[in-house]
Amino acid sequence: MAQPLTKEIVTKVAHLARLKLTDGELDLFTTQLGQVLGYVELLNELDTSAVEPMAHVADIANVFRDDELQPSLPRTAALSNSPKTDGKYFIVPQILEEG
């Protein structure tokens, strides 16, 4: 674990997380996340090589249901909170370059 957290790593993580951060935020988070990562080193005291990971407390897996047709949200309701819509679709910026 113990690798110092640099501003470069934080910048890369911010990109992965799709978060545009200011320079001030990058500096602050580099310090603060470094402190938190330093703290969680505590877990290395424990030998967990023989312990199964526990992703979930409830022993539920693969909850199936019948594939039945059911009413879903009307289109107008589904689009009602969209930042940009033409009433039929969610509108996003152009992705492909024009040929």
Binding site: L43, L46, T48, V51, P53
Partner: peptide, 9 residues
């Protein structure tokens, strides 16, 4: 993954 193991403990 480490945290998930400690969670079981």
């Amino acid at each position: 993954l480490k945290a998930l193991r400690v969670r079981r403990l």
